[in-house]
Protein backbone atom coordinates (compact mmCIF):
# COMPACT_ATOMS: atom_id res chain seq x y z
CA UNK A 1 0.00 0.00 0.00
CA UNK A 2 2.74 2.39 1.02
CA UNK A 3 4.73 1.42 -2.02
CA UNK A 4 1.74 1.91 -4.19
CA UNK A 5 1.00 5.46 -3.03
CA UNK A 6 4.63 6.43 -3.37
CA UNK A 7 4.54 5.11 -6.93
CA UNK A 8 1.35 7.02 -7.63
CA UNK A 9 2.76 10.20 -6.19
CA UNK A 10 5.95 9.84 -8.16
CA UNK A 11 4.16 9.12 -11.38
CA UNK A 12 1.77 12.02 -10.78
CA UNK A 13 4.73 14.27 -10.20
CA UNK A 14 6.38 12.96 -13.32
CA UNK A 15 3.20 13.38 -15.34
CA UNK A 16 2.77 16.90 -14.02
CA UNK A 17 6.30 17.86 -14.91
CA UNK A 18 6.08 16.32 -18.32
CA UNK A 19 2.68 17.48 -19.47
CA UNK A 20 2.64 20.65 -17.43
CA UNK A 21 5.72 21.70 -19.28
CA UNK A 22 4.01 20.99 -22.55
CA UNK A 23 1.03 23.11 -21.60
CA UNK A 24 3.20 26.00 -20.52
CA UNK A 25 5.28 25.58 -23.64
CA UNK A 26 2.14 25.71 -25.72
CA UNK A 27 0.95 28.97 -24.30
CA UNK A 28 4.09 30.99 -24.23
CA UNK A 29 5.39 29.90 -27.69
CA UNK A 30 8.26 31.99 -28.93
CA UNK A 31 6.76 35.25 -27.82
CA UNK A 32 7.05 36.66 -24.31
CA UNK A 33 9.80 34.59 -22.75
CA UNK A 34 12.57 37.04 -22.11
CA UNK A 35 12.73 40.14 -19.99
CA UNK A 36 12.84 42.44 -22.97
CA UNK A 37 9.65 40.89 -24.21
CA UNK A 38 8.03 41.67 -20.87
CA UNK A 39 9.18 45.23 -21.24
CA UNK A 40 7.79 45.29 -24.77
CA UNK A 41 4.37 44.11 -23.57
CA UNK A 42 4.25 46.71 -20.88
CA UNK A 43 5.53 49.65 -22.91
CA UNK A 44 3.37 49.03 -25.97
CA UNK A 45 0.21 48.21 -24.06
CA UNK A 46 -0.92 51.83 -24.00
CA UNK A 47 -1.27 52.44 -27.72
CA UNK A 48 -5.06 52.14 -27.66
CA UNK A 49 -5.35 55.25 -25.53
CA UNK A 50 -2.22 57.13 -26.46
CA UNK A 51 -4.38 60.19 -27.01
CA UNK A 52 -5.27 60.52 -23.33
CA UNK A 53 -1.73 60.16 -21.97
CA UNK A 54 0.03 63.28 -20.75
CA UNK A 55 3.05 64.60 -22.67
CA UNK A 56 5.28 63.48 -19.78
CA UNK A 57 3.92 59.95 -19.89
CA UNK A 58 4.30 59.86 -23.65
CA UNK A 59 7.90 61.06 -23.42
CA UNK A 60 8.75 58.37 -20.91
CA UNK A 61 7.17 55.70 -23.14
CA UNK A 62 9.10 56.96 -26.15
CA UNK A 63 12.26 56.80 -24.09
CA UNK A 64 11.55 53.23 -23.03
CA UNK A 65 10.86 52.30 -26.67
CA UNK A 66 14.24 53.68 -27.70
CA UNK A 67 16.03 51.68 -25.01
CA UNK A 68 14.11 48.60 -26.09
CA UNK A 69 15.04 49.10 -29.73
CA UNK A 70 18.72 49.29 -28.79
CA UNK A 71 18.34 46.09 -26.81
CA UNK A 72 16.62 44.28 -29.68
CA UNK A 73 19.32 45.40 -32.05
CA UNK A 74 21.89 43.58 -29.94
CA UNK A 75 20.06 40.26 -29.78
CA UNK A 76 22.08 37.17 -30.50
CA UNK A 77 21.21 33.56 -31.02
CA UNK A 78 19.50 31.22 -33.42
CA UNK A 79 16.32 33.25 -33.74
CA UNK A 80 17.94 36.68 -33.60
CA UNK A 81 17.48 37.51 -37.28
CA UNK A 82 13.73 36.93 -37.16
CA UNK A 83 13.30 38.47 -33.72
CA UNK A 84 15.09 41.65 -34.75
CA UNK A 85 12.97 42.00 -37.87
CA UNK A 86 9.66 41.36 -36.13
CA UNK A 87 10.19 43.28 -32.91
CA UNK A 88 11.99 46.26 -34.41
CA UNK A 89 8.91 46.86 -36.54
CA UNK A 90 6.51 46.29 -33.68
CA UNK A 91 8.30 48.56 -31.24
CA UNK A 92 8.81 51.20 -33.91
CA UNK A 93 5.10 51.21 -34.65
CA UNK A 94 4.16 51.92 -31.08
CA UNK A 95 7.01 54.37 -30.57
CA UNK A 96 5.90 56.35 -33.59
CA UNK A 97 2.32 56.39 -32.39
CA UNK A 98 3.43 57.85 -29.05
CA UNK A 99 5.52 60.39 -30.92
CA UNK A 100 2.48 61.23 -33.06
CA UNK A 101 0.29 61.68 -30.00
CA UNK A 102 2.97 63.82 -28.35
CA UNK A 103 3.27 66.10 -31.36
CA UNK A 104 -0.50 66.36 -31.48
CA UNK A 105 -0.61 67.44 -27.85
CA UNK A 106 2.27 69.87 -28.14
CA UNK A 107 0.72 71.37 -31.25
CA UNK A 108 -2.49 72.00 -29.38
Amino acid sequence: MKNFSRFTLLSLLFLYLFFGNCIVGNFSSVYAQDDWKQEYSSVCAKTQNAMILTPEELKSYIDRCDKLLALINELEGEQAATEKKVYTKRVKMCRELYQFALEYKEHK
Binding site: F27, S28, S29, Y31, A32, Y40, S41, C44, A45, K46, T47, Q48, N49
Partner: peptide, 9 residues
Protein backbone atom coordinates in the same frame (compact mmCIF):
# COMPACT_ATOMS: atom_id res chain seq x y z
CA UNK B 1 1.14 34.88 -26.33
CA UNK B 2 1.38 37.21 -29.30
CA UNK B 3 -0.84 40.21 -28.69
CA UNK B 4 -0.38 42.48 -25.75
CA UNK B 5 -3.26 42.78 -23.31
CA UNK B 6 -4.43 46.28 -24.03
CA UNK B 7 -6.88 48.53 -22.36
CA UNK B 8 -10.11 49.35 -24.08
CA UNK B 9 -9.68 51.71 -26.97
Amino acid sequence: GVSIKREKL
